[in-house]
Write a protein that binds this DNA or RNA. Structure first.
Lengths: 199, 199
DNA sequence: GCGCAAATTGAATACCCGTTCAACAAATTG
DNA sequence: CAATTTGTTGAACGGGTATTCAATTTGCGC
């Protein structure tokens, strides 16, 4: 059975099944049995390819993070190099997943919770957080002094997380479009406030 | 055994123990056995006073919410009736618990996650969310038109949640003082932006 | 076809947890 | 000081889950 990439295929099958089961049964209800059924594979295969349930969950989160990064890259590619435009693109990228998968916010929340008790997930979470923050600071730095840029970046990052959290908790009562608009409004206000101060 | 409030005492013992265990072992690791051990009572007593684990968790969340509300009342009491002052007080109140209990953010995150699978916890969460939102809108309404006040309130609420989330995930790397300062800065910017538009 | 090794299966296993309830202890009452 | 109510215990039970591994299937070279 030397089919190249059998391993890669199986891994992705299981990750997809994991996301599917989490979306329908919640994080707590995502058992090996259900994941195996959804992937049309057996329960034993999880240990074989991921060493256990925890390994599968970590791989799944790694996959989600990489998707997020790809979304960001795509949206950044087509834009101009105007700092403000880039900031808006970052905001768009960070909410692009909410609409396609209504339940994905819940999945993120579950992973955040899980991350607090898993060093590996925590590490992934931090890497991602730092990337977002340094991206924001890089673009803001061209519009305002360093300290103000850092403060604004922290605020934008918190807003993004906050809206995701609220999306997860409110089951669709919060429109992603609205969250994006509010983030953008804030960025403009921050730029405007800086110009006012400069003058 | 007519000691008045034996029931009250036991209930509080169990709630305290629950918080203690969640802080140290996480929400998943908070088992009846550990809670009973921490409270120096037996496992059976949980069912006796709360009808089961779920009841204990709900009571614990209700306790946390009431603490938050008391913090808010205290901080509002001493302040003037200036709308801006009141808004600042609300921000202070929403971060007052972070410092005293470094781990309490984790507990909140755990409850939020759990709330998605428990109608009763979800109800409590929503009530609290609405109170925060309508409080913010009430004061903002005196400083800006309705639509802008609503948008600003949504944003402030998201920022508060976002900073709490980051506090939970980062284990003390984010200073509560900094979060408070950034929220307040945003509020001032929003007020300023409105005045600029009006003029 | 044949044999070998990689891939896959799923019943058996072992563990953990929440709940129950009969028995026990303590306090109150008559 | 019994009798009785109230409060408390913790072993036993049942449901459920992740993991294991011997047996089985699958694909490929010869």
């Amino acid at each position: 059975m030397a089919r190249v990439g059998v391993e890669t295929i199986r891994r992705q099958q299981l990750i997809d099944a994991t996301l599917e089961v989490i979306e329908t049964h919640g994080f707590q209800g995502a058992t090996i049995g259900k994941i195996a059924a959804a992937s049309k594979l057996s329960v034993g295969i999880v240990s074989h390819y991921f060493g256990g349930k925890q390994g599968l969950l970590e791989a799944t989160m790694r996959y989600l993070l990489s998707c997020l990064q790809q979304d960001a890259s795509k949206l950044m590619a087509g834009r101009s190099h105007d700092p403000r435009e880039c900031l808006m693109a970052i905001v768009d990228a960070n909410f692009s997943g909410v609409q396609t998968h209504a339940q994905s916010a819940k999945t993120w929340l579950a992973f955040w919770t899980q991350a607090m008790h898993s060093p590996e997930l925590m590490r992934l979470q931090r890497v991602n957080e730092r990337r977002l923050l340094s991206n924001l600071i890089y673009h803001l730095r061209q519009l305002m002094p360093r300290e103000r840029a850092q403060a604004t970046a922290q605020t934008v990052a918190a807003m993004i997380d906050g809206f995701w959290l609220r999306a997860a908790l409110s089951e669709g009562r919060i429109e992603p479009d609205q969250a994006v608009a509010l983030c953008k409004t804030y960025i403009d206000q921050a730029i405007q406030a800086n110009n006012g101060a400069r003058k």
